[in-house]
């Protein structure tokens, strides 16, 4: 088992290095950052000097090496636009994204999963069929579309929720959170729901199809033959076997949620790191974009790794196979 985990770990490190290089090469070197940095009156000599100072005249791999060197010292560089350290800008925006993502995950799992389980136990019922059709909608439409529709319904036609921004926040240990105030929660509601819908549909479908398949298996039949109460059959016998793949997917979907947060934050002007990314892209602020991408890649590879390790450790069958 240890060997398997180590191999998986090494694999992740290699993936990370390759991806970081591709990201770096792709974003950092295409186009000339001097077009943003230098103002229009700068002379050719000034631009030349600045290019050298930033090391932009060096070969690609040297620049990458220097960047990674500084990265390991915790230095993401400075923004071209604000001149602030990129790490400060990201840390400042992170809590907003974090609370939105976590709440949306809670909504999607808390609503999608139980509904899916019920639909999977009664696959022929009208509600189950209707839910499936609706889940197609939630699953396939881009999340800005739901943002748009929610805004239209709940902010324009029936203005009951605030449309943009974080609202009132409370500082805890110097970090501002919205979810601790009533106003903040009201502001959070629409963005979190928007972000949750796609995932909710996914959870519904996974739980439904998983339950539908499991309920036809012999061991469920035997559970019925044993005269177990139907509650126990569904929760203990069926759901347990459906949950292993679902937990894996919940883990993997966190990456999707972060990606989705970029769009959701743009729709609701939610000041998180996704909004920061889009703003930085529009202002050609490359250090921020590269930093975001690297952090995202790192987080993503890490989540994948954790999910895989959990899978290796938790599944009794692989566990036994590895020990035996």
């Amino acid at each position: 088992m240890t060997e398997m985990i180590i191999r998986r770990l090494l694999q992740s490190v290699v993936t990370l290095l390759v991806l970081s290089f591709i990201t770096f090469a792709g974003i950092y070197l295409i186009g000339n950052p001097m077009e943003v940095l230098a103002d229009e009156s700068a002379t050719a000599a000034q631009i030349q000097a600045a290019t050298e100072r930033l090391g932009l005249d060096q070969p690609l791999w040297v620049q990458y090496w220097h960047y990674m060197e500084r990265l390991f010292a915790g230095d993401f560089g400075r923004s071209y636009v604000t001149s602030l350290p990129v790490s400060t800008m990201i840390l400042q925006r992170l809590p907003a994204t974090l609370e939105m993502t976590v709440i949306s995950l809670l909504i999607s799992v808390g609503i999608g999963l139980p509904l899916g389980v019920v639909a999977g136990v009664f696959p022929k019922s009208r509600w189950s069929r209707g839910g499936s059709v609706l889940s197609v909608l939630g699953f396939s439409l881009p999340n800005f579309w739901f943002g748009l529709m929610l805004l239209l319904c709940l902010a324009v036609w029936f203005p009951i929720l605030p449309a943009i921004g974080r609202g009132q926040t409370v500082e805890v240990n110097g970090v501002a959170w919205s979810f601790l105030t009533r106003d903040g929660l009201a502001h959070l509601a629409m963005p979190a729901l928007t972000l949750a819908i796609g995932n909710m549909a996914l959870m519904f479908r996974l739980a439904k199809s998983g339950m539908q398949e499991v309920m036809l298996l012999d061991y469920i039949k035997l559970a019925r033959i044993k005269g177990l109460p139907s509650r126990r059959i569904v929760v203990v016998h069926a759901l347990r076997n459906v949950m292993i793949p679902i937990i894996t997917i919940i883990g993997l979907e966190i990456g999707g949620l972060i990606a989705g947060s970029i769009i959701t934050e743009t729709v609701f002007a939610w000041p998180g790191i996704g909004k920061l990314l889009i703003d930085s892209i529009n202002m050609l602020d490359r250090p921020v974009v590269v930093a975001y991408m690297l952090i995202f890649t790192f987080t993503f590879v890490l989540i994948n790794l954790i999910v895989d390790i959990c899978y290796i450790v938790l599944d009794p069958r692989t566990r036994e196979a590895l020990q035996g």
Binding site: T15, L19, G26, I27, I30, G255, G260
Partner: peptide, 19 residues
């Protein structure tokens, strides 16, 4: 594998940013 494990929208975004 690597490509499919990443959210498609993010990969597409980065390509658009680059090109």
């Amino acid at each position: 594998d690597i490509q499919m494990s990443f959210p498609t929208i993010l990969v597409a975004m980065m390509l658009m940013v680059t090109f």
